[in-house]
């Protein structure tokens, strides 16, 4: 089992519903976020192209944050979900420095926090909050080891990329182009 997410950059309208849904679902403190939407504008008017990307922790298969954590607070859960165990985290900040995607932040309570793929929902068979609220249904979540899953299907039929694969992190979030 290997959980992954595919986001359709052509269907995304940048409404930021996923961001708000995450903040509500996970009680993210005010002024922080676990996911965010980036708009990348390429070219000069009138020849411009826009890519809208909802970004979050990539739940990397070769994750530097898990490697550099001195206490094992950052660890892998089932399906490769990268989690931080709050009571083991000493807040040294090493994992924040190690993440090429700037996906982690220091929670006001001291520990480090980030996207969990809504593991509490996934364990109940639900989609992560962001995927479930997206009005254009552009977020696909699932098991890429299961050949019949929706996410495998869409990755088979579309062109896609991941972010900074050259960082060697084996990111598990894919952007459909």
């Amino acid at each position: 089992m290997r959980y992954a997410m595919a986001l359709d950059t052509r269907k995304c309208v940048g409404c930021s519903d996923c961001v708000v849904a995450c903040q509500t679902e996970n009680n993210v403190p005010l002024g922080f976020c676990r996911d965010w939407v980036k708009e990348v504008v390429d070219g000069t008017y009138p020849n411009v192209s826009i890519e809208l990307r909802s970004e979050r922790c990539n739940h990397c298969a070769n994750s530097p944050c898990v490697r550099c954590c001195p206490t094992g607070a950052s660890h892998f859960e089932e399906g490769g979900i990268v989690l931080v165990e709050h009571n083991k985290c000493i807040g040294c900040g090493a994992c924040i420095e190690s993440c090429p995607y700037e996906a982690r932040y220091s929670h006001p309570d001291g520990y480090v926090d980030k996207c969990t793929f809504c593991i509490h929902r996934v364990r109940e068979g639900l989609d992560p909050a962001c995927a479930s609220v997206c009005p254009t249904k552009c977020i696909y979540f699932g098991d890429i080891d299961d050949p019949n899953s929706r996410i495998v299907n869409i990755l088979k039929n579309r062109k896609f990329k991941s972010l900074a694969p050259e960082a060697g992190t084996k990111p598990q979030i894919f952007y459909l182009l």
Binding site: G14, G31, F32, C33, W36, V37, K38, V41, G43, Y105
Partner: peptide, 16 residues
């Protein structure tokens, strides 16, 4: 020319 903008949530002094 490439320009990156944050549409949401991310333009906050606590993280960026």
């Amino acid at each position: 020319m490439k320009e990156e903008l944050f549409v949401s949530g991310r333009n906050i002094p606590n993280i960026d």
